[in-house]
Design a protein around this nucleic acid. Sequence first.
DNA 1: CTAAAATCCTGGTGGC
DNA 2: TGCCACCAGGATTTTA
Length: 265
Amino acid sequence: MPELPEVETVVRGLRGPLVGRTFTGVTVRWPNSIKTPLFELNERLPGQRIEAITRRGKYLWFHLSGGDSLFLHLKMSGDLLVLPASEPDDPHVRTIFSLDNQHELRFKDTRKFGRVYLVAEPNEVIGKLGPEPLADDFTPDKFAALFERRSGRLKPLLLNQEFLAGVGNIYADESCHAAGLDPRRTVNSLSPVELERLYHAIRQALASGILHKGASLDAVYRGGEFQNHFRVYDRAGQPCLTCGSEIQRVVLAGRSTHFCSNCQR
DNA sequence: CTAAAATCCTGGTGGC
DNA sequence: TGCCACCAGGATTTTA
């Protein structure tokens, strides 16, 4: 479940080996993952140099010398590896990007949900995303303003990428716990004080995730160890680390949701 | 308009 | 032990 901290960790790991390299070709093994016409990808990508790699929400964003943008979304099980072209193949590699130094960027994705986009206009992919929660200019006031004219329950709203970019199931649950808010709360019932608590909880949870190099689940993210710091996520039936009450699990908007009914109101 | 459900996928899990 | 139905998960699409 790569969310903002996991994607940020991947981006930071790729800059060293990839910035300055030039793509020389693409091999597509699972065409459903490519959201750009294949002929266009094959025609436009080779020859473009990687000038920078950034992140927007849960998307990796490769800024290319020809002015195009290559976006990768890891979805559930995606991972990116930079290896010598001579390294043995892996059956879960769905797309191979060849580089100008006898290496390859391999998009490995067991569950085939990951997606690849090559576009001239970035907003075609990321245009509808909400604000970056860790941006310097993302203030408590701007966060509170996001809730104007919103309705529904808190948890599904936090997962909505058009509301706020990058928060997924793990960090939504952890943020609600840290803020002392029941994820089932109706959002228009949240007070200014509660919104401010939530703002700090989200920023803190994401920053902590990045500090621990993300969470490793499904054996995908090597090195990350934020999973050892979960206080509610995936802990149904276990005692709350704050008060000892049993962590509850419910399904909200089709997503498993974990919380402490004592600490979170 | 909102909300819920179906869709895409596969490896791991739980039941028997 | 072996088999298999079932499930999670992000984002989009469809249905209500």
